[in-house]
């Protein structure tokens, strides 16, 4: 049985709160670029941008980042991970980039995404926003904006489900081998 960590409405509220924190931290939207990691970070980044438009009336540029080409486990894999095109709205020189992902776990994906971002220019600063921080970091990486801290054991699974990708909405904690039903 999977535990519901955040329900449909709670997830929506969490995203809106993250949007407020990001704008507050940046003291406005000046120079702000949201970079959502594929697959689920990107739709979350778009929702954050929507929320910002609602309360600030400003369109913040949103890009997507695919990390396949920057993974540190490519050499070990039998088959190549899928690569999808990233999309960046403009040069990142001098921008404040907020990297957005669904779940922060070992930190390896974020490390890869940072490398990818730097190929688009030299941002003034990069921040990290995640819906869930579940611990078990393997690299010295910490989030700046967190939806929810969830203590987990390493073999549990945290799933953020989004309407755009999964058809339904919510955050679930599952035991190993369990699948969302």
């Amino acid at each position: 049985m999977s535990d519901v960590v955040l329900g449909h409405d709670q997830l929506g509220r969490t995203i809106r709160r993250l949007a407020h924190e990001i704008v507050e931290n940046n003291r406005g939207t000046e120079g702000l670029v949201l970079a959502g990691m594929l697959t689920r970070g990107y739709p979350i980044a778009r929702r954050i941008a929507e929320a910002i438009r609602e309360f600030e009336g400003v369109d913040v540029p949103v890009g997507s980042v695919d990390i396949a080409l920057y993974r540190d486990d490519y050499q070990q894999r039998e088959t190549p991970p899928r690569v999808r095109p990233s999309q960046m709205p403009a040069s990142l020189d001098g921008a404040t980039v907020v990297l957005v992902d669904d779940v922060l776990f070992t930190g390896r994906s974020v490390r890869a995404a940072l490398d990818a971002l730097l190929d688009y220019g030299r941002p003034a600063r990069v921040r990290l926003a995640v819906i869930v921080d579940r611990g078990h970091r393997e690299l010295p990486i910490r989030p700046d904006f967190i939806g929810k801290n969830i203590p987990t054991s390493a073999n549990q699974l945290v799933e953020v489900r989004l309407t755009e990708v999964d058809g339904d909405e919510g955050v679930y904690l599952m035991e190993p081998g369990e699948r969302h039903d």
Binding site: D101, T106, S109, H180
Partner: peptide, 21 residues
């Protein structure tokens, strides 16, 4: 989040589709 397997897909290709040749 390396253990997080994507379950959805935006291109219509099944996730298990990969290059084996």
């Amino acid at each position: 989040m390396t253990s997080q397997q994507p379950t959805g897909d935006m291109t219509g290709l099944p996730p298990e589709n990969t290059w084996r040749r």
